[in-house]
Design a protein around this nucleic acid. Structure first.
Lengths: 195, 195
DNA sequence: GAATTATTTTAATCTACATTAAAATTTTTG
DNA sequence: CAAAAATTTTAATGTAGATTAAAATAATTC
């Protein structure tokens, strides 16, 4: 929770715009979605979007910031509940996936970071790297507390985060699959970590 | 091996074009790379690319077909060597990663499949689905032969293939990292599968 | 080495969006 | 309910970058 800075109608509507955009980007690809596509999904006409975002670049940027927020939030909640590193890792994955397939979804796949303008690109890259770092810290914690077997945390993190990052590419709202994923993914991805 | 249909100068040059394109797509994003970018990488001017591909859409399509070829080839070689399902899975991952970070690389991240034209999109999707299916078959084989613990092969497959698919997004040719990945990834990704 | 074929270039279009401007409508507020 | 603010629309503009045409160069062939 505690994700939306304010709950004005404006920011709520903008959130709807971001979700519509994420939906389009994930399904039609980035270059395949025009602002018209996004607007039409909301029963609007394209120029209306400019009331909520400065331009398309900012739309993508905000989608990615939102994606990062969701991930960070999941991780913070997971860590806050304590337990072993392994438990935290597993819980984080569950929380993150639950968010992605639930109310916070869809989350845009972050495949176009490099085409953001430099400031935005750097900021999103930082968020992304920080997230990875935090996950690696959980893994290291788990190794320290004996719940996780010694491993290359960098590569292990890359492997697991890759799985997570790819989810928006193939998950498109199928409810049964969502339930399946929440129950299977965290265990599948962490089963190999146990000491 | 045995991947290039013919070894005419033309097809070799086209392969170079595809690798240059993959390089650009992965680093600058799809919408961030113009044909000029790709051409310049090869010391060419943009219209020269039209000698090798019909248009940008076909360029992307061919990148993806090539990516699929590399994956299929890795899997076929892995299966051909036999052994338990677990061994085959691990070997496939190694082969695939070796190809991606080695001579066959860079491989384009397949994030823009939906913006291909329908025929191409369907074909690439089919290749991709077939690849997933084949991987799931390996997992099922492993469960049958007792090397892999019972699991949801669909989700397990999705998890592991997601990791693989995301690699081009963060791996950019660092040699040390490449070696690390080849040695770590296959074990990290399959450690949890063992019965 | 002339003729043919392959490859690349320069110069010129063309077009799908993104974007802006101005006006219209809807919502809110006092 | 009138005035102000918020939201969306229609209509017009602008542009990067894909694409095409025609010409030039380089490589092959006989």
């Amino acid at each position: 929770m505690a994700r939306n800075p304010d709950e004005t109608r404006f920011s709520q509507q903008r959130d709807r715009v971001l979700k519509a955009a994420a939906h389009c980007f994930n399904r039609k690809g980035y270059s395949g979605t025009s602002l018209k596509d996004v607007a039409n999904m909301l029963g609007l006409t394209d120029p209306a979007l400019y009331y909520y975002v400065r331009n398309k670049e900012e739309l993508v940027y905000l989608c990615y910031v939102r994606a990062a927020d969701v991930g960070r939030d999941a991780m913070e909640r997971a860590v806050a509940e304590g337990g072993t590193g392994l438990e935290q890792a597993r819980r984080y994955l569950r929380f993150h996936i639950e968010s992605m397939v639930g109310d916070e979804g869809p989350i845009a796949i972050m495949s176009e970071i490099p085409s953001l303008k430099p400031e935005h690109r750097d900021e999103v890259l930082d968020l992304s790297r920080q997230h990875s770092k935090n996950f690696e810290a959980i893994l290291e914690g788990g190794i320290a507390d004996g719940s996780i077997a010694a491993c290359d945390v960098r590569m292990t993190g890359n492997a697991i985060m890759g799985s997570i990052n790819w989810i928006p590419k193939w998950f498109h709202g199928d409810a049964a699959q969502a339930a399946n994923m929440v129950s299977e993914f965290p265990t599948v991805l962490t089963r190999g970590l146990a000491a």
